[in-house]
């Protein structure tokens, strides 16, 4: 079945162009990062004529990439930790209890996940600026704290949605047995549900981190030179009058490797978590 000659031909007719489409930018990124500046100024060279690792050293001094890196890491990790912790409790309630307002709450979570970020960006900007003026200090606008708050607008609903789906898949008998034995609700959550949900929690955490790491809209409107994240930093790096394309490609490669490796290592869990909702529906 599915092994007729026609289908085999069709398979490669589909796969070869698709693989090329995916590969060409990856190839460009990697090979251009290995070229000296003069080799990215003229017409494009398919192979690096003078391979060098210099761009990987230069990126840290041409732009404050280290600072961008630290900012991105800080903001993404805190947003991830906050949303995962809040989501664990909320998802446990949604998955294990039937209470008044449950449907409404899930509905709000699902809806806010669908809304465009710009809808929250404009008011949050105005709120931040005015709160700072009231407080007479830089608390939210152009600070890492402010950025974390805006990142929660997308990491939190996503985490609750994905984690409650995951909790639903853990047999209720497990924690109900613990409850019968006299364990409290929290005890059952921590000692029974969480240990079996570990893959799901890791998937939610990694995915939250990835989305925060790649975020550009909020970061471009709400950061300054000190609090810039990688996304804004690299966007600016690639928009200068004379762009160091070899360095920009090296930097893009460096910021991509951690998340791509994380994604590929945890592929199985992430795919299961991501698709659970849609496939159920």
């Amino acid at each position: 079945m599915f092994e007729t000659k026609g289908f085999k031909v069709f398979r490669w007719v589909v796969l070869i162009p698709l693989a090329l489409f995916v590969l060409v930018p990856l190839y460009t990124m990697i090979t251009s990062a290995l070229k000296p500046m003069r080799d990215v100024l003229g017409t494009f060279q398919w192979l690096p004529a003078h391979p060098t690792f210099q761009p990987f050293a230069d990126i840290w001094t041409t732009v404050p990439l280290g600072r961008y890196f630290a900012n991105s890491l800080f903001v993404s990790v805190i947003a991830m930790v906050c949303s995962v912790i809040i989501a664990i409790f909320a998802s446990y309630a949604i998955s294990r209890y039937r209470f008044r307002g449950r449907g409404a709450f899930s509905g709000v979570v699902l809806a806010t996940q669908m809304f465009p970020g710009v809808l929250f960006l404009l008011p949050l900007f105005i709120i931040f600026v005015n709160l700072d003026r009231l407080a007479g200090a830089h608390l939210f606008y152009q600070t890492r704290l402010g950025l974390i708050v805006t990142y929660l607008t997308f990491t939190l609903p996503f985490s609750i949605y994905m984690l409650s789906g995951y909790f639903d898949g853990i047999p209720r008998d497990l924690d109900e047995a613990a409850r019968v034995d006299g364990t409290s609700a929290l005890g059952a959550l921590f000692r029974v549900v969480l240990p079996s949900a570990r893959p799901g929690i890791i998937a939610v955490a990694v995915y939250s981190f990835m989305t925060a790491w790649g975020e550009l809209l909020f970061a471009s409107a709400l950061t300054n030179a000190q609090t810039r994240t990688l996304s804004v930093g690299l966007q600016a790096y690639s928009s200068e009058v004379n762009v160091y394309w070899n360095q920009v490609m090296a930097a893009s490669l460096v910021v991509s490797v951690p998340v791509v490796v994380g994604f590929l290592v945890l592929q199985r869990y992430l795919v299961a978590g991501l698709t659970a909702g849609a496939v159920k529906a």
Binding site: M210, L230, S231, Q235, S238, V243, M249, V260, F263
Partner: peptide, 14 residues
């Protein structure tokens, strides 16, 4: 899996 901006920047170069 790539951060969206990293892929887009590469295309911008291409």
């Amino acid at each position: 899996a790539l951060p969206a901006y990293a892929g887009i920047i590469t295309w911008k170069f291409m």
